[in-house]
């Protein structure tokens, strides 16, 4: 965590440079809300709905599991961090925003979901969970470095808003990277998405962004 600010700034700027439109400078802005511009609790829930119970599940599960020697496992640093994160959502929500300008945004077919989607930045940012082979093309820039975004968040989650060339609507989607966990007798993967509502069963569900003008 010591080099988190450097990792975050380097990754964000590199991604923005790779997405430069050309003809104008790329600008990247980093801003912290601080407590003064935090989101009040009642409004923050719009962005946390469905996440808090999974944070709670991760927080309570780890220490409850017995170790191999039968002793109760200790809270480790990571578990403590998640437990604190689960409490954060009851408070005004402070945030960090990274904005870029003069860039293409997260381009690519939002419905593509192959094992590899060269050049599809939307896929690379939200759907690529395997290890990327560097140097394939621009999508390679969405390799392991992108995990700095959830890493930088105390609740291991971020939202991304993008407007792509030629489109009037913006797309909003989020990604949370926790740990595998159990809730109500069901097992869940480490990752979840903030996405448009969809009545499909989990086995059929394909996360899609929220569209908004």
């Amino acid at each position: 965590a010591a080099d988190m600010p450097e990792r975050l700034v380097r990754e964000a700027i590199q991604n923005s440079m790779d997405a430069a439109l050309g003809g104008e400078p790329v600008r990247v802005r980093f801003a912290f809300s601080g407590i003064d511009h935090s989101v009040p609790t009642h409004r923050a829930m719009d962005y946390l709905n469905g996440l808090t119970e999974h944070l709670d599940a991760v927080a309570v599960e780890q220490p409850a599991r017995p170790r191999d020697d039968g002793a109760a496992s200790q809270f480790n640093d990571e578990t403590q961090a998640v437990y604190r994160a689960a409490r954060l959502v009851d408070q005004p929500l402070e945030w960090l925003v990274v904005e870029d300008f003069g860039t293409r945004g997260l381009t690519g077919n939002i419905k593509a979901n192959g094992a590899n989607e060269p050049g599809n930045n939307f896929w690379g940012f939200f759907r690529q969970f395997g290890i990327s082979t560097k140097g394939e093309d621009a999508a390679g820039s969405w390799g392991l470095g992108k995990w700095v975004f959830p890493d930088a968040s105390q609740i291991n989650a971020f939202l991304a808003l993008t407007r792509r060339p030629g489109e009037t609507e913006s797309l909003l989607m989020g990604l949370a990277i926790l740990k595998t966990h159990e809730r109500d007798g069901r097992r869940y993967p480490a990752y979840g998405h903030y996405a448009a509502s969809d009545p499909a069963a989990d086995s059929e569900w394909f996360q899609l962004p929220v569209r908004s003008s």
Binding site: L48, N49, G50, L51, H54, A157, L172, G174, A176, T180, R186, R187, Y188, P189, Y191, G192, H193, Y194, A195, A196, S197, D198, D202, S203, W205, Q207, V210
Partner: peptide, 18 residues
């Protein structure tokens, strides 16, 4: 309303990642 969602793991996924 948009919201966070985690898809329940399938038996095959659990076997791969217990």
């Amino acid at each position: 309303t948009p919201h966070w969602r985690f898809a329940e793991m399938t038996p095959a996924q659990i076997a791969e990642n217990p």
